[in-house]
């Protein structure tokens, strides 16, 4: 299937059509922040201001707080009621290529050995409509991770904003099937296609920030016990955990019970390796000191994850740099090893 296009002022019609069978989630403003939220059925102005969301799309598959099951004490003892996400299909409209890659990366973990039913159910029921970046942020460094602002392989459909039009390209079979059912799309001309390609190319060239990955695993291994390096690197870190919260690949979680009299829920919530309680045991804590926790986070992403799953668990989205209150910069710390 060739490229399709739709006039940007007609996007409303397209989204309405999608909304019939899907819950459409797209970038919206909430409390002064940009987040993915169900479409309100009206606004399509995100194309004018959207760069990326503060909370990564992992939250749509692995929510910050998730009720796993309910338990209730009855006459015959405890009864358990599984709380699975509903089966309605959702479309994530406007996901950035880096964030789509991040989902591929954490898929490996959630589908490994013991399958995570909550995450995988939502993944199976979702379709990703990507939006290439025309104007990357100055914190972006995806190009160093082999991801480009116009990357298409991790989404089902890729859109590119080309002046008055949105150029639409089916990538997966799922995406192709969906597009073939849509009315209101017209075929794009070769001129528009080359315009889109050009824009993606120029966006990639705009990415100035880099992370030096050459020989990184070797370097990290030999630097591992360089306490001085990690103490210095973590000196200003406040261990607030925002880097893990906004990271599209950070997946660590906690499991707790909420209880009221004879019934309650088991709840999974995001956790952070930046918190000392994360690994605390009654008699000891292997990562009691802040520098050990910072080292763990970077080694996990750049050394352990590649060893275990064959890919670095960083996409260069730059959120951790943007949101860090004390300007800790992953590219500097990794680059300095």
């Amino acid at each position: 299937m060739g490229y399709k296009k739709i006039k940007k002022d007609q996007l409303n019609t397209f989204l309405s059509e999608l909304s019939k069978d899907y819950t459409v989630v797209l970038p919206s403003r909430s409390g002064g922040q940009v987040v993915f939220a169900p479409w309100d059925g009206k606004n399509t102005d995100f194309l004018d201001w959207y760069k990326n969301t503060i909370i990564p799309p992992k939250a749509l598959f692995f929510p910050p707080v998730e009720e796993m099951f309910r338990f209730r004490k009855g006459e015959e003892g405890y009864e358990i009621e599984e709380l699975m996400p509903d089966k309605r299909q959702q479309i994530i409209f406007g996901i950035r290529p880096c964030d789509a890659r991040a989902l591929k990366i954490i898929d490996m973990l959630f589908a490994d050995t013991y399958k995570d039913p909550y995450y995988l159910r939502r993944r199976e029921n979702s379709l990703l409509v990507g939006l290439s970046c025309n104007e990357p942020c100055d914190t972006c460094f995806c190009a160093s991770l082999d991801i480009s602002p116009g990357q298409s392989e991790d989404v089902d459909i890729l859109c590119t904003d080309v002046s008055d039009n949105l150029l639409i390209e089916a990538i997966s079979e799922k995406g192709s099937n969906l597009l073939s059912e849509m009315s209101g799309l017209s075929d794009a001309g070769s001129e528009e296609e080359s315009k889109a390609k050009e824009m993606r190319k120029s966006a990639k060239e705009k990415i100035a920030r880099q992370i030096n990955l050459s020989g990184l695993q070797e370097k990290m291994r030999s630097n591992f016990e360089n306490r001085e390096y990690w103490e210095k690197a973590s000196k200003k870190c406040m261990a607030c955990g925002i880097c893990t919260y906004v990271c599209p690949t950070c997946h660590c979680f906690d499991i707790n019970d909420e209880n009221r009299k004879k019934e309650g829920k088991r709840v999974r919530s995001w956790d952070s390796c930046k918190f000392p309680l994360f690994t605390r045991m009654p008699m000891e804590n292997p990562r009691h000191e802040k520098w050990r926790r910072m080292r763990q986070r970077y080694h996990h992403k750049f050394e352990y994850y590649p060893m275990n799953f064959g890919t670095i668990a960083c996409t260069g989205c730059g959120r951790c740099i943007r949101e860090c209150p004390v300007n800790v910069d992953v590219t500097e710390i990794i680059g300095g090893i």
Binding site: D112, Y114, H251, C252, I255, F278
Partner: peptide, 16 residues
């Protein structure tokens, strides 16, 4: 220290 017991929650690692 473990939570999930199945290699996902991220706390019981020693290296990889």
């Amino acid at each position: 220290r473990m939570k999930c017991g199945i290699g996902k929650c991220g706390r019981c690692n020693i290296g990889n």
